[in-house]
Design a protein around this nucleic acid. Structure first.
Lengths: 260, 260
DNA sequence: ACCATTCTATGGTCTGACCAAAGGCAGGCC
DNA sequence: GGCCTGCCTTTGGTCAGACCATAGAATGGT
C-alpha cells in the first residue's frame, strides 16, 4: 500500500505507456530513503517521541512492504545521525528507540568534516582559538572543584619525565577537552572536542619532527598550561581567555610557522 | 585476516578458556562499525582523499572478510553523514566515492539535533554569539565589495513593506550567512550556517507567536542590521563584533526571555 | 520462596540470488 | 569511414530466508 510497486522493486509514481508526450522521468528514490521518510514523518508529527520504541525490524518491514535489509539500512542511516538507538534483547533498553543524546555523532561528523574538507591550518587554528577562548572564559566562572582537580592531575602527569610525546599529546588533548566540558556548554564543548581531536594526529607528527627541540617546547607548553590553570583557579575569565589564545598560537607556530 | 573470527561472526580480541582470572570482557563492536573504522582510518591517514573511489562493495566485503550487508550498512551510515557518495553504473560518477563537501550533512545534523531540543537554547545562543562575533570581526577586515553590495540588497529587501515574516526570516538568515562567508573562514562559516539554519524554524514560530508586537521588533532588528552593516563598511572590527552580539541577544530575548 | 532452566523477542550477521543503471565495446548499416 | 544499435560488464539496490547472540520473561523443580 505505501508504495506503488513495479516488478523488480522499482519505485514509480505512475507507469503508463499511453502517451508519447510528457515522458516525465520517474521519481528516483531508493527504498531505504522512503523508509527514512516514514520514520521522520512519525517523529515530526509527534507520533514518535524521544524514548519511544519503533516496531521491530521484521514487523516494520512487513508493514511497509519492504525487505528487512531496507529497514535496517534506513535505521543505520538514522542511527549514524544519532536519531535512533538500537539494542538487542527484550527489556526496556532493547529494540530500536528514538535517541536522546546525539552528541557523539556530532563530534564524529565534525571531526571527519575537518579532516576531509582540508581546511587551511590557519582557519582551524582560528576556530580553535575562538572556541577555547569561550570555553576558558566560562570555565573560569563555573568550573567545579572536581574539574579543577582533574586538570591539576593532568598537569602533574605531563610533568613526569617518563611522559613521551604520544602520552604528552593525549594528556594535552584531555586538558583542553576538560576545560571545554567545564565550560558547561555542550554544543561548544562538542565542537571543541571535534576540532582538537581532528588535529591530534597532525600535532603528533609535528612533535616527532621537532627532534630535540621538543624538550624546550614542551616546557613552554607546560608553563602555558600552568598559567591557564592558575587563571581558572582564580576565576579570572579575562586571564584564562588571553592565556588560552597565546598558548594555542605559540603551539601552532612551532609546526606551521609559515602558514600563520 | 583483518579480524579474529569466531563462529557465528562474533568478533573477539582473544578467546581462551584456560584461566578463570582476568576475564576481561571482550571488545564489543558490531561488524559494520569495524568497517566504518577501516574507512575512517583510510580517510584520516590520507589513504583516501576527496573524490577517491572505494573498492566495490563485493570486493571490500571479501577484503575485510565480512558480508556485503555489513559493508553496505557501514556505507549507509557514512553516506548519511555526507562522507560517502554512492552511485551505480561504470562511469566516473559511479561506485562509492569520498564526498567532496560534507557541509550540507553537517548542517542537517546540527539542525536536527537542535530541533529535538537536545541542546538548551541558551547554549545555542552563546555558540551563535561566539561564532558570529568572530565572523563579523573578520568580515570587517576583509569583506569584498560584492559581499557588501549583497548585504545592502538584503537590508533593502527587509525594508520592503510587502516583506512578510517568513521572507524576513529567510533574508535575515542569508544576511548572517553572508557575513559568515565574507569572514573567509570556511570552517567557522559552516558551523555558523548550521546553527543559524537549525534555528530558522523555531525562530519563525516565535515570529508568528509575537502577533502585532512583531512590527516593532522587526524595526529593532532592521536597525541592528544597519548598525552591523555600517561597521562592516567602516572596517570597524570592534564595532561589528559588539553590534552583532547585541543584535543576537536582543533577538532571542523576544522568544526565550526566561531561558537566557 | 528461591534459583536454575527454558522460552521468546529482538537486533546482528551471513549467503546467495536477481534487478537496475550506465559506460564500454563490437558489429552492422548507411 | 562514421555513426548508430544493442549486448556486456561493472556496480549499487533489493530481496528472501536462514541462523546466531543477547537479555528479559516465563516456567518449573526443590
Amino acid at each position: 500500500m505505501p508504495y506503488a510497486r513495479v516488478k523488480g522493486s522499482r519505485l514509480v509514481e505512475f507507469d503508463s505507456d499511453e502517451d508519447s508526450t510528457s515522458w516525465r522521468p520517474v521519481a528516483r528514490a531508493r527504498t531505504y530513503e522512503l523508509v527514512i521518510d516514514r520514520v521522520e514523518e512519525q517523529i515530526l508529527t509527534g507520533g514518535l517521541r524521544v524514548g519511544d520504541r519503533l516496531p521491530a525490524e521484521r514487523d516494520l518491514a512487513k508493514m511497509l512492504d519492504v525487505s528487512r535489509a531496507a529497514v535496517r539500512e534506513a535505521f543505520r542511516a538514522l542511527e549514524a545521525q544519532g536519531v535512533l538507538r538500537m539494542g538487542v534483547g527484550t527489556g526496556p533498553d532493547s529494540g530500536t528507540t528514538v535517541a536522546a543524546l546525539p552528541s557523539p555523532a556530532l563530534t564524529r561528523l565534525l571531526r571527519l568534516h575537518v579532516a576531509l574538507a582540508n581546511f587551511p591550518v590557519a582557519d582551524v587554528v582560528r576556530a580553535r582559538i575562538m572556541l577555547e577562548r569561550e570555553s576558558a572564559r566560562r570555565a573560569a566562572a563555573r568550573a567545579r572543584a572536581e574539574d579543577l582537580e582533574r586538570l591539576g592531575e593532568l598537569l602533574d602527569a605531563m610533568d613526569d619525565p617518563d611522559c613521551d610525546r604520544q602520552r604528552f599529546n593525549d594528556l594535552d588533548t584531555e586538558f583542553h577537552v576538560r576545560i571545554a566540558e567545564a565550560g558547561g556548554n555542550r554544543l561548544v564543548a562538542d565542537m571543541t572536542i571535534a576540532i582538537r581531536e581532528s588535529m591530534r594526529k597532525p600535532l603528533l607528527e609535528v612533535f616527532d619532527r621537532l627532534g630535540d627541540d621538543w624538550f624546550a617546547i614542551a616546557d613552554d607548553l607546560r608553563a602555558d598550561h600552568r598559567s591557564i590553570y592558575r587563571a581558572l583557579l582564580d576565576g579570572d575569565a579575562d586571564g584564562a581567555e588571553s592565556c588560552t589564545e597565546a598558548h594555542i598560537r605559540s603551539f601552532y607556530r612551532h609546526g606551521w610557522a609559515d602558514e600563520l
